[in-house]
Every structure is written in C-alpha cells, then in structure tokens.
Design a protein around this nucleic acid. Structure first.
Length: 449
DNA sequence: TCTGGGGTCCTAGGACCC
DNA sequence: TCTGGGGTCCTAGGACCC
C-alpha cells in the first residue's frame, strides 16, 4: 500500500461541509484486473484493447504507460511505441464483477454515490455529517479497503464540488516521471484557498466537457487556459460553443459546479456496435450483422426488463464518415424479431457508397411495460397515414402490426424451436408491415381486418 | 498514428397541434 | 392573401465521457 497523504498536507481533516464531494478513480482498471487474474503479467507492459488491425487501447498498465501507451490510442501505435506490449482482448464480465465489489466498498461508506463507468464514482459525504466522518480519514480508509479486498490501487479526490473532486483525484494518481513510477499522494483535497490557484494552471482541455473539438475552438478564440475563460462573458462564449456548454464552462472557470450526485441515474439507451475486422460489403452481409446485433440488444432489454419505442442504427463507412437512422414506434418492443425488422428496414434506407467498418443497433425511448399498449392489432380502422409518414413507410418498407409480429415469432418458435427461428426478411415477406409513431394504420394482407 | 464500445447530452430543423 | 408563436415530438448529427 502506498502512503496516503493530502498534497496540501492539512494539519486538520476538513469537515464534510468543507469537502463534501469525493471522487474515486481506480488505477489502470482493466489492465490491473488482468494482472490480478494472471500474476505472471506482473511488472510487464500490459494493455487491454482491440486487435492491432482496428483496435484501440482501453486500459494500459503503468509499465506500458512508461512507453507512452495511453487509453484510446490505436493498438498499432501502442505496439510501435512498445514492441513487447501484451495486448489482451478484455473480459468485461470480469471487470463488472470487480466493479460491483468496488461499489460495495463505497456503499459501506455512504449510499449517496454515483458511478461513472466501471471504475469511477462520485460520492456526496454530507449525509455523514452527524456521524462526524472526516473526509480525508474516510478516503484513506477507502483506499485501504479497495487495496486489501480487491487488490486494486486508486486515487481519491476531495473538494467542494464535482469539478474539484475530480481534478483532485487526477492529481492524486501515481504518475510516470522520466520513465520512473512515482507515487501520487493517494488522497488529495483541494482546499478553498487552492481552488483559484489550481484553475489558473489548467488548460481548458482539462475541464469536463472540453474534448479535442472544443479545445481547438477555444484555442482559436485565444482562450487556451481556464483563466482565459474568466475574461470573456458568457454570451460571447455561448455564440461559439452553444448556450449549454458555455454556461457550464463559465461556471467551471469561476470554480462553480452545481452538478449533483445522482444516485440512481436511469438508463436511457441500450445498444450494441461492432467494428468488423474486414469491412462489410453489400446489404446481405449487413443484414446478417444487423440480426446478430438486434439479438444482443433484445437480450439486454429483456434482461433489464425494458421495452423500447425507438430503434436506431449506426453505420460507419471505410472513409470514417457515418450515418444514423432511427424510427420511433407508438409502442415498445423488446424482442429480436421486431428489432431486426426495423433495423433491416432502416438499413435499407441507407445508400452504401463505401464498405462498412462499423454497424450499431440501439434501443431507446423506454416506456413502462404497463404503459405499453399493443393489444389492438386487429379491427382498428385503417386511417390513412399522413404524407410524411407515408413517404417514410414507402421508402423504408416498414409497417408491421406488433402482435402479428409477435404471433408469427411465437409460431416459428413453436414449430422449429428456439434455435432455428425465422428471419426478419421472412417476416417482412409474409406481408406484415411496421407501425409508426402516430397511430396504427396500414397493414399487411395477413393482418388486415 | 489512424482512430473501440458502452453510454450521455446538446443542437437544429421539421412536423404538428393549439 | 399573408402571416403567428409556443410547445412537443421526432430525426440526424456531433461532441464528449470512461
């Protein structure tokens, strides 16, 4: 266990009101889990990531980072920097196991925490006021437990809000200096006196919400530093980056961040996408992939007990341009056949100028099962769809009655068993049509009243 | 150097309703 | 004949985060 001390070494531990927000960030999470599961990897440059042909690094051990290997770096580049790099494909079920244990440890401190991905959490310590919990002591205890029980290292940041807590945990991290591993402080608290000083030293890129595009924009405006943002008024900023981001950045630059710790953030979309080793050519190959993706999404939906009204597909071409298409239904769905039918229809609306390196299928606009009205399949009046819908329907060949789809799927399953289910193409050819968002109309021959 | 996969949120425009 | 505004929903694209 590495020594834990606050960088600013306060003689006194602040109160939870002085340091209400805590941020924990596990070190090199995926790579560390791989090393725990295979100790022969210890001390070696390890990365978790995609294949050299088309992958990127998701996580790199500190030994790998010494060579300059970083997250989001193309695997080929990482290999060039570090020829002995051990690249592992990633076992996300395993990482989720560890993540659950991580959250369990946090929950023992407080239930008021918010995960970000698998390896980070924010926690609001204010509810611990009456227990006389001291933030730095609590953070150190957290590090010990995570190290003892999970075998993982982490950095903990404390601050007045999410902005500073996160900046602090970053500063707490072990860093590689001149090729050597240097211990970070482990726990860092940004006391109010340090806040302005910290912000003044920071490039805008270090702020949450500023990525490469916004950083370039701000640079062009002559605002490469956080301290520069204080000089500009919010309206001017908004004219360049939009009102929402402008308000956020302007507040950050003044040390303010009103984002709260949200304990149960509801999931808003579920999707699955894949970059192919060899780009797909032609609709037939895409349809096969879309079916597989739809099945994955459907399983996930059912696993979480959700039904989705919107199905989207994402296509990325070889030239890295991309398109998305989506369709919102008036009812929710959760099975692979319904999703496949829609995904295929959306696919059919895309012009394939290049071969396709990535395909994704997503489901969103979740509704409660109890609100999902899908029973009136037969006997509805055949109102004429409006012009826009009709155009959509024609162009995308979709219009299905949900129950008809369901019934057909059940029939297929009954007849052939689960493993040999029919295809969406077959369902479509059977004459059914998809229903769209506003009302139910137009039906295939088999389901017409 | 050549770009993953899981997500979230924002913006802008069009359709539609009142 | 010319002309409204606000609110909601949907779609497409983009940026960002881990």
């Amino acid at each position: 266990m590495k020594p834990s001390a606050a960088l600013n070494s306060p003689s006194e531990d602040p109160s939870v009101d002085e340091a209400p927000l805590l941020h924990v960030d596990l070190d090199a999470f995926f790579a560390s889990v791989e090393i725990l599961d295979d100790p022969t990897l210890l001390g070696k440059p390890v990365a978790v990531g995609g294949p050299a042909s088309r992958g990127v690094v998701a996580s790199a051990s500190y030994e790998a980072r010494r060579f300059g290997v970083r997250s989001a770096m193309p695997t080929v580049v990482a290999r060039r920097l570090c020829p002995n790099l051990i690249v592992l494909p990633g076992r996300f079920d395993r990482y989720e196991d560890y993540s659950r244990q991580f959250h369990h440890v946090i929950r023992d401190l407080t239930p008021d925490f918010e995960p970000l991905g698998l390896d980070e959490v924010f926690a609001d310590l204010r509810s611990l006021r009456l227990l006389n919990v001291r933030p730095i002591a609590a953070a150190q205890a957290l590090r010990h437990r995570i190290n003892n029980e999970l075998g993982l290292e982490c950095g903990v940041g404390l601050g007045r809000n999410k902005l500073f807590a996160k900046l602090a945990s970053k500063k707490s991290k072990p860093r590689v200096v001149q090729g050597n591993l240097v211990d970070g402080a482990g726990v860092v608290w940004v006391s109010p006196e340090l806040e302005v000083q910290w912000l003044n030293e920071l490039p805008v890129r270090a702020l949450w919400g500023v990525g490469p595009a916004t950083a370039a924009k701000l640079e062009k405006l002559g605002l490469p530093w956080v301290r520069d943002l204080v000089q500009i008024d919010e309206k001017t900023l908004a004219s360049h980056v939009g009102p929402s981001l402008a308000a956020t950045l302007w507040a950050f630059a003044h040390g303010e961040d009103n984002r709260e710790v949200v304990v149960d953030r509801p999931v808003k979309s579920i999707g699955h996408e894949q970059t192919f080793l060899r780009s797909l050519q032609g609709m037939d190959e895409l349809v096969v992939a879309a079916r597989a993706h739809s099945a994955v999404v459907a399983r996930a939906l059912r696993g979480q007990g959700r039904v989705a009204r919107t199905i989207s597909i994402v296509v990325r071409f070889d030239d890295f341009t991309g398109v998305t298409r989506s369709q919102t239904l008036s009812f929710g769905i959760d099975d692979e056949f319904a999703i496949t039918v829609i995904a295929e229809a959306l696919l059919a609306s895309i012009e394939l100028a290049h071969s396709v390196r990535l395909l994704g299928v997503h489901a969103s606009s979740f509704i409660e099962r109890s609100e999902n009205q899908m029973q009136l399949t037969f006997g509805f009046e055949a109102t004429s769809p409006n012009a826009r819908e009709r155009a959509q329907l024609v162009s995308r060949e979709r219009q299905i009655s949900y129950e008809a789809l369901r019934d057909a799927v059940d029939d297929v399953r009954d007849k052939f068993g689960r493993a040999s289910v029919g295809t969406a193409s077959e369902l479509r050819e059977s004459g059914m049509e998809i229903e769209t968002q506003r009302g139910r109309h137009a039906f295939g021959p088999e389901v017409s009243p």
